[in-house]
Design a protein around this nucleic acid. Structure first.
Length: 477
RNA sequence: UCCUGAGUAGCUCAAUGGCAGAGCAAUCGGCUGUUAACCGAUGGGUUGUAGGUUCGAGUCCUACCUCAGGAGCCA
């Protein structure tokens, strides 16, 4: 009898490892291997012997009956081990499996309505089983955890069911973005991530040491896109974007992914028409390919079904009027203060949410005040205080998912705007060049991938939409 | 950066200023259809940090640290 619990546990652990090693060496090279399948395809193998390799997601130990939920990255399948059907070594190996132990299992697929899993309805009757590694005590349990703990364990959290569903949808959204643009005549032209001093707003840029010179991580590829349309007509760039703003909200990351299409001979109206087709394609593709994942996330898909063109279009002026009317109609002074707005102000989160709630699909708000937007946006004809810009606001409070505009293509006007806001023209010499050698009306926009994923998945926070979120207080893991 | 709130076992949380608790996880035992199984047992604590008030502080006070929610800024 041992006097200390830890010594006792250590002895048991050593014994378990010994048995594991014995079994490993006794079966090495002899594991009965049938057709290696992906669990996602399990339904195609009813009645057949198959092999799956993966990790133990959860287990139910019923004594002489073991239910093993095994993940392989493509899905989750229940594997059932009966003691009476198996050699002693195989069954005791099954008993040794801890949560997240790695394992190779061979058995017969059978349809059974009781079988949980993704896809469910099929299970594997275990015939042989080999432990690869017995996992130590696994920190994440199939229950509620605090967000700090989960983010600290993000490298393991990505194995959890909800994260699996979200990141699979993210991959499909990214794939759809690329496919749709490729199929509609847009050329992928990569823009640099390391960029020189732009002379403007460096407080929100991450500065790095470029052989003794200051350089900055890219905030946008747009200016380069404007050069690239001169070569290719319709282009897009797609990559990570970096903002050093000390934003601490459910909608901000320091590193996020953005796709930025830019088109020559394109008006603001062309832009809206293109964006609504593009965004609808993303949503409809996820609906078509990820019913299972949306169900895991308990997403109300009826809110996604009607994401189809046309999207409503309202001017900034109309949006302000609608907000002011809303303020008149409410009695709550806090709500009034939250929605307070005068012409010229940019929208805050409460404004965007309030406007978006007036529609059942994303809404375009266009012709924002020039002062609230970037210097390169084309003024509205005869009304220079407003510009040819458009934001797309997602429903259900998800806010701005795209922002774009017609760009100034007149060299003199652009030079004037650069002087007005006081940035150094020499940094923009190449950008001005674009207006001297065949400038054309053109337009483009950026779509934030993580905000789109959060919206489509119905998530309250953007941090789960990217595998490893970079936030104000988060650089690990 | 500002406002609000929270830090107690590996995790999720209790505890009137008066003995530090539960569930889950872990470990041991039982169970042939479990769906976050269930039943029994065992081990597990510098109550975020530093001061202070008090006979006595997880609890009250001060400062700091960390995190969360919201705002601003933005995609």
């Amino acid at each position: 009898m041992c006097l200390t619990g830890s010594g006792c546990r250590a002895r048991i652990r050593r014994a378990a490892i010994f048995i594991q090693l014995l079994y490993y060496y006794s079966t090495q090279g002899k594991l009965f291997v049938a057709t290696l399948i992906r669990i996602a395809d399990i339904g195609q193998y009813d009645g057949q012997e198959v092999t799956v390799q993966g990790w133990l997601y959860n287990r139910t130990d019923k004594g002489r009956l073991q239910f093993l939920l095994v993940r392989d990255g493509t899905g989750i399948a229940q594997c059932v081990a009966f003691q009476k059907d198996l050699p002693e070594a195989v069954f005791s190996a099954a008993q040794l499996l801890t949560q997240e132990s790695s394992v190779v299992i061979t058995g017969t697929v059978r349809a059974d309505q009781r079988a949980p899993g993704y896809p469910g309805g099929f299970e594997i009757g275990v015939k042989d089983l080999k432990l690869i590694q017995v996992a130590g005590e696994y920190p994440i349990q199939p229950k509620e955890h605090g967000i700090e703990f989960l983010m600290d364990n993000r490298h393991l959290w990505v194995r959890s069911l909800r994260q699996w569903a979200i990141l699979r949808i993210r991959a499909t959204i990214i794939r759809t973005i690329r496919n749709w643009l490729d199929e509609h005549g847009y050329l992928l032209v990569d823009t640099p991530i390391l960029t020189p001093a732009a002379g403007e707003n460096t407080t929100t840029l991450f500065e790095i040491d470029y052989f003794g010179e200051p350089a900055y991580l890219a905030q946008t590829g747009q200016l380069y896109n404007e050069a690239n349309i001169g070569a290719f007509g319709k282009v897009y760039c797609f990559g990570p974007t970096f903002r050093a703003e000390k934003s601490k909200t459910r909608r901000h990351l320091m590193e996020f992914w953005m796709v930025e299409p830019e088109m020559a001979f394109f008006s603001l109206e062309d832009l809206m028409a293109m964006e609504e087709e593009f965004v609808s394609a993303i949503v409809q593709t996820v609906l078509a390919q990820h019913r299972q994942e949306l169900e895991i996330l308990e997403r109300d898909t009826s809110r996604l079904e009607n994401i189809k063109p046309p999207f409503p279009r309202i001017t900034y002026d109309e949006a302000v009027e609608r907000l002011q009317k809303l303020i008149e109609e409410t009695d709550d002074p806090e709500r009034k203060a939250e929605l307070a707005i005068t012409w010229g102000d940019d929208f805050g989160a409460p404004h965007e949410t309030a406007i978006a709630e007036m529609f059942d699909r994303p809404v375009f708000v266009y012709h924002y005040p020039t002062a609230a937007k970037a210097f390169y946006m084309q003024p509205v004809e005869g009304r220079p205080e407003a510009c040819r810009s458009v934001d797309l606001l997602a429903p259900e409070g998800y806010g701005e998912i795209t922002g774009g505009s017609e760009r100034i293509f007149d060299a003199d006007l652009l030079k004037q705007r650069i002087d007005e806001i006081g940035i150094s023209p020499e940094n923009y010499a190449w950008y001005l060049d674009l207006r001297r050698y065949g400038g054309v009306p053109h337009a483009g926009f950026g779509l934030g991938v993580e905000r789109t994923v959060a919206w489509v998945c119905g998530l309250p926070h953007i941090r789960e939409t990217i595998p490893y979120a970079r936030m104000l207080n988060r650089l690990y893991p």
